[in-house]
Amino acid sequence: MRKRVLPGFGLSLGYAVAYLGLVVLLPLAALAWKASGIGLEGLVRLLSAPRTLAALRLSVGGAVVAALVNVVIGLLVGWVLVRYRFPGRRLFDALVDLPFALPTAVAGIALTTLYAPNGWLGRWLEPLGIKVAYTPLGVFVAMVFVGFPFVVRTLQPVLSSLERDVEEAAESLGAQRWQTFFRVILPMLAPTLLTGFALALARAVGEYGSVIFIAGNIPMRSEIAPLLIVQKLEQFDYAGAAALGVAMLLLSFGLLVLVSLLQRWSQRWAERSA
């Protein structure tokens, strides 16, 4: 261990831990404590209720699919922004962060207006039989929107530092461009894509503001889990709300652990094949 020449260890660590404890850990302890008040039987009844299951399925399932779609689109957009030069590239690059910067409620009402049957996009989709606003598809669209920047932004630094000589070697050995992409580039990007996937997933699972407007919130159909928490709170069912909150936290942590395991595995695999 390095000798401590610099001052302020006690003050900075003490302040950081105390602040974190008061703002984050104490409130989360209250959540766990309140949730335990529901009892095991109550928990089973809550989590096995069809309406809860439907909401959890939509929040988790929708988030997984949205994150997968974001991996594909993020790969395309990240690739185009890093590898190609075209007019307006920097402007579009800056635009990628819009979903981070735009408040969720604003995104929510804008997406709803856009995809409503008489909206700019909705009026073209409606005749095709595609209903987006007030359906589970709308939930999915909002989830793709909020998760979009994650994959692009994780990918960009890695893409621009990717050694071109590997690609050139593959091509000089006679590989087609698409072979180089799928056999050489994609495996090298896999760990990064998984990081982006995990970030987009974590964001979408708990997303509320941008989703509730476009969802229509029809019970059993387009109702997300966070909305169920809000409803329980409005009925003063604190224990039920807390239990659902804990369930959501555990679910998203479980998913994140799963992704990080996948990531470790793909990293080892990429290193071995490199």
Partner: peptide
């Protein structure tokens, strides 16, 4: 989830 952040 933002909702849980308020709930706590």
């Amino acid at each position: 989830s933002p909702v849980v952040s308020g709930l706590v």
